[in-house]
């Protein structure tokens, strides 16, 4: 009796979960199915399957939004910013943990406190700062922005992790004649790997998808990222859903593929990052 009621319960849980999953997938169906249809077919019936796999919308949208270029820009911005963030963030956090001077403690408090500042509350003066330091309309400027904005969370997460690493190994390496930088790079940084993974994932989802900061900092069309070129595409082709949907599918595809390949790490990273954050 008991086992049967348990099996019944898990069966109904399964049915509920599958039903919800199908509901979650509906938007993807609409997006994909209609991206292959000619405009007239979308108007006629948006819920039907496409009659044929027409790639016309895709080839056209690919050219119009200069997809390859946008993809390259997004990739370059995300990868470089994250390389800077992990390197500089881990270095700073390491120093703050190992040398907890009054100055370093104050600095750490500042980094952590700044996590409550929403981007929109400082974006206006940031534009002024951007023009003083020549950060507008060039990629290095945007890299610096992401390193500045991302350093709070990155340092906070690394700080907690470095604390859990015993200092004895480092002391032994110093006795063997290793320089302080060598100790960090050859011994400490590799030990930080699990946290580095978390930080890379959290920051790549953020930077890859970010819209407002690049929208403000990059005016030149040649520097457009995927969100920016999608936005300007929608400005030009309002309501031309056949092309727009193909553009959206291409825009979403890279990050979805990234997620599907790394999903185990991503889900672990999010759990680790939020439990400590």
């Amino acid at each position: 009796m008991k086992t049967r009621s348990i099996r019944l319960r898990s069966l109904s849980a399964e049915a509920a979960a599958v039903l919800l999953a199908l509901l979650f997938l509906v938007p993807f169906y609409f997006l994909l199915a209609n991206s292959f249809k000619p405009y007239a077919d979308i108007l006629l019936d948006a819920s039907s399957l496409p009659k044929a796999l027409r790639w016309h919308n895709y080839t056209k949208a690919f050219d119009v939004m200069n997809f390859l270029h946008a993809f390259r820009n997004s990739l370059l911005i995300t990868v470089t910013s994250i390389a800077g963030l992990t390197l500089f963030g881990s270095m700073a956090a390491y120093r703050m943990v190992r040398k907890p001077s009054m100055y370093n403690n104050l600095l750490f408090t500042l980094f952590v406190a700044a996590m409550v500042i929403p981007f929109q509350s400082i974006m206006i003066p940031l534009m002024k700062v951007g023009s003083w330091f020549h950060l507008v309309n060039n990629m290095p400027g945007l890299w610096l922005c992401y390193i500045g904005f991302g350093s709070s969370l990155t340092i906070f997460l690394y700080h907690g992790f470095v604390k859990s690493i015993p200092a004895e190994v480092e002391e032994a390496a110093v006795v063997d004649g290793c320089s302080p930088y060598g100790v960090f790079w050859r011994i400490v940084f590799p030990l930080l790997k699990p946290m580095t993974m978390t930080i890379v994932i959290l920051n790549s989802l953020w930077i890859w998808n970010d819209f407002l900061l690049p929208q403000l900092m990059l005016g030149r069309p040649g520097l457009r990222t995927i969100p920016l070129s999608t936005f300007s595409f929608f400005g030009q082709y309002t309501k031309q859903w056949d092309l727009a949907l193909a553009a959206l599918v291409m825009g979403v595809l890279p990050i979805v593929v990234f997620f599907l390949f790394l999903q185990k790490h991503i889900i672990e990273g999010i759990t680790a990052g939020s439990v400590k954050g």
């Binding site: 700062v129 390193i147 960090f184």
Partner: peptide, 25 residues
């Protein structure tokens, strides 16, 4: 020197991008 090399880059970026605009705001 270690202090500058380890904490400098992150601190400078943070100061320019977050602190300065915050105070200016």
């Amino acid at each position: 020197m270690q202090q500058i090399i380890f904490t400098g880059p992150a601190t400078v970026a943070f100061a320019i991008i977050v602190l300065l605009p915050f105070v200016m705001g």
